[in-house]
Design a protein around this nucleic acid. Sequence first.
DNA 1: TTGTAGGCGTTATCAC
DNA 2: GTGATAACGCCTACAA
Lengths: 344, 344
Amino acid sequence: MNFHPITIKDIATALHLSVSTVSKALRGSHEISQETKDNVIAYAREHNYKPNPIAQSLKRGRSKSIGIIVCNIDNNFFSQVINGIESVARQKDYNIIITQSRESYEREVANSLHLSSRSVDGLIISLSAETRDVDHLIRLHQKGLPIVFFDRVTDEIATHKVIADNFKGAYEATSHLLEQGFRRIAHITSPFSLSITSERLQGYKAALADAGLQPDDRYIKLCEHGGMIQEETRQALTELLQLKDRPDAIFTASDRLSTTTLSLLRQMQIAIPREIALVGFTNSISADIFNPSLTAVVQPALEMGQQIMDLMIELIESKHPVTSFQKRVLDTELKIRDSSIRPH
Amino acid sequence: MNFHPITIKDIATALHLSVSTVSKALRGSHEISQETKDNVIAYAREHNYKPNPIAQSLKRGRSKSIGIIVCNIDNNFFSQVINGIESVARQKDYNIIITQSRESYEREVANSLHLSSRSVDGLIISLSAETRDVDHLIRLHQKGLPIVFFDRVTDEIATHKVIADNFKGAYEATSHLLEQGFRRIAHITSPFSLSITSERLQGYKAALADAGLQPDDRYIKLCEHGGMIQEETRQALTELLQLKDRPDAIFTASDRLSTTTLSLLRQMQIAIPREIALVGFTNSISADIFNPSLTAVVQPALEMGQQIMDLMIELIESKHPVTSFQKRVLDTELKIRDSSIRPH
DNA sequence: TTGTAGGCGTTATCAC
DNA sequence: GTGATAACGCCTACAA
């Protein structure tokens, strides 16, 4: 199990130099003669010297790595965001460490502690569905850990945030259903504690109100685990279907909820969109091959990821403490497909 | 940006003890008096002391973390495997660091170097589609880094491996199509360099042969990027459709290829399964809501992940060098859905 | 221009 | 039972 990459010390003894000379030579210091530099660099290259990042982290307290916490990587939205983050990180020579909370508060706390103790230079996070308070993050933030929130953000920490225009996305989705002639539009969404929930809920209600309809709380179902537990979604759906005025359309608020709802409706042999239409927030790359193809509110996930990482780098590399923070709101796109087209 | 968690030294000065006494007390050494231990532990708890993992890594050369390289996390198979790995890792108090090669050899090399230089205790990897040689991994392995391969494995490194029974999965998928009466069965798969490709190809050919059919190379299409580039799949599909004896069924060899092929066939307005039937390797959780629902060879991904991590821990924690290696082959399951049922 | 020494936080060894 | 010291690999004042 021993694993001995070449170190500065090895180079020093081999070349009869001191460790510090080698260190400086490798970093191209002008204190060092060209000849020595050439020798050292040649030797280092030849023996494939790589500085030990662990030692560098310990010394510098910085690691050139960024921690990410998302609820679930098995989700096109988050994996696309991560790809956006990664593309910028690569350019700037940062590494990313991906972890999943799986919608569990406990795991979110554990992951945040672990990442910070591994000296990540910053933390990018979308809160878990279970998270009610963000004290764990406040503590890290107060200690100086740069944090960028995205998607599921909190007002309790003043830092950069990147979100989609959830209000508008929800408004457009609901309006589209209204235009198609649907009137009893239900909404299945995540716990109310999540920012995306209230933003999307407001968009939904505003669209109804603007169409002269009264939002009806019986048509609104919150899933405490954000769709991670299928039974929960089934329960919500069953309750909707048992209403006297059964909904003629459903607007689902997240990737997981959208696919689960579609799947359940099909299991229940409910025709979409004939009996119930469906529109969902989703970045699934398969939405067009679903049965029926799914009308989707799509977030610019890749671009979100890039902007998230841009902001993170600004936080990390800023010479002076950053005091003014941005909340970037990116546009969504409504992709209309079969699941929401009213049959004649 | 400064970030000062409490250290052993802080405890030592506060309690007028030496650093080493504190260190021993925290680890419950019996050299230390109960009183001192109690004091130290109380103080540590009170001030929320956490050992610095970076310093521990530097000192011990071990990090209690495992690196993972997969081509793409945006894929139900890999994310399920990762969840399996993670579940065991959590129990054993290991952390996992997930990276993506995105089917690029260069990124696979870069990620493997980065992970090893961050002192991961082991590396779990499924090779990228571009990878032709594994010298980068051989080097790390020779230096003592424990490696476990899964899914896309190599014969060139003697270590533990976990794969699905790709031959059998492919054999069953092809046999199923044959039983349904399809005769011109095409196969779209990954580059030949990948172990899964030849295993699945052999299963496919064996099923044809056992049915008295001669495998026809014109019906076999290799996609060099494993489906990461849609144009490549489109090209393969177009060529198949232009054959004089156009296939009446297609068997796709991976998650990505399966969904892309389904999507392309629909774009081309080719009726499935009436004009062309489709069976694919996929762990997509949405296969049942595809249009049509997709007959799938499903791998026991979660269980694979657990076994992978079990084997990894065995490698890491074994007192003596491990010299006998396992290749675990797990069973696949054929889930028959609409896309492969021959219409009357 | 090069070298020495000390420190980052932890731990192992050895001395008191 | 406790403490001093060195070491992990790197970096950086400061000394030579």
